[in-house]
């Protein structure tokens, strides 16, 4: 997994790419989320548009990111889900947990 961080006003977008799978950690989601919290960010958008594969442990990392942000009084949303990632969140019933957006503009608008 690789990542790119973009701050717009008070929203931090974390753009992930590559594989979010067990043992595929050049960067970890944990580190990215902790860095965001340390930087005082409470609005976090994870862009999954360039993610090629996610396994159950990658899904687990997303859930952990969500709960960590919520515990720190913030909000985490997801944007640009591939049909595969969308299906995996459907069957695991996590669509009921995550705030999911099709495009960046509506995701950003939801934070303001």
């Amino acid at each position: 997994m690789k990542s790119e961080v973009i701050d717009r006003e008070d929203v931090r977008t974390i753009k992930l790419s590559g594989k979010i799978t067990i043992g595929a950690g050049d960067v970890t989601m944990r580190e990215l989320i902790h860095a965001a919290i340390d930087d005082g960010k409470k609005k976090i958008l994870i862009d999954l548009g360039d993610v090629k594969a996610v396994d159950s442990s990658g899904i687990g990392e997303l859930v952990a990111a969500y709960t960590t942000v919520a515990k720190n009084g913030g909000r985490l949303a997801l944007v640009h889900l591939s049909p595969k990632i969308n299906d995996i969140l459907q069957v695991t019933q996590l669509v009921t947990v995550f705030d999911i957006f099709d495009d960046e503009a509506s995701a950003l608008a939801s934070f303001s």
Binding site: S56, G60, E61, V63, A64, Y66, T67, Q93, V97
Partner: peptide
């Protein structure tokens, strides 16, 4: 269990 960070592999 919905917010647990693991336990989805066999289910998948």
């Amino acid at each position: 269990n919905l917010l647990k960070p693991s336990g989805r592999g066999i289910f998948i």
